[in-house]
């Protein structure tokens, strides 16, 4: 069982590495943000598998924290990353 789960962690990790290629390539910022999102979810899955393999039950708490905060990087991206576009529902006004 341990071998199988370790192989599964390795496989998910390989997918993360492929996702990194997408951060490198882009082409747009939105694509880079999506790749980060993929790496986030993949990282959560890898953490859960790793916690089971290495018998570290507290890894679930780390994964829980990551899952809770998974939206934050993307929110920062749409709020601050595109200041010129008043995206509907996400407009921000600068108080000068």
């Amino acid at each position: 069982m341990t071998e199988f789960l370790t192989a599964a962690v390795g496989f998910v990790l390989a997918m993360l590495a492929l996702g990194l290629v997408s951060i490198l390539r882009g082409p747009g910022d939105a694509d880079r943000m999506m790749a980060t999102q993929l790496i986030g979810t993949g990282g959560i899955a890898a953490l859960l598998l790793l916690g089971t393999v290495a018998d570290v039950p507290a890894a679930i708490d780390v994964a829980l924290t990551l899952a809770l905060l998974a939206t934050f990087a993307s929110i920062a991206f749409v709020k601050k990353g595109l200041p010129r576009f008043e995206a509907d529902g996400t407009a921000s006004t600068e108080g000068e």
């Binding site: 993360l16 951060i23 910022d29 990282g43 953490l47 790793l50 570290v56 990087a73 990353g81």
Partner: peptide, 19 residues
């Protein structure tokens, strides 16, 4: 911006190493 996104992903992978 690319460097920053890369750094966010980097932090996540480092968390895996700490576990």
């Amino acid at each position: 911006f690319s460097a920053t996104v890369g750094f966010v992903a980097y932090g996540l992978l480092v968390a895996l190493i700490w576990v």
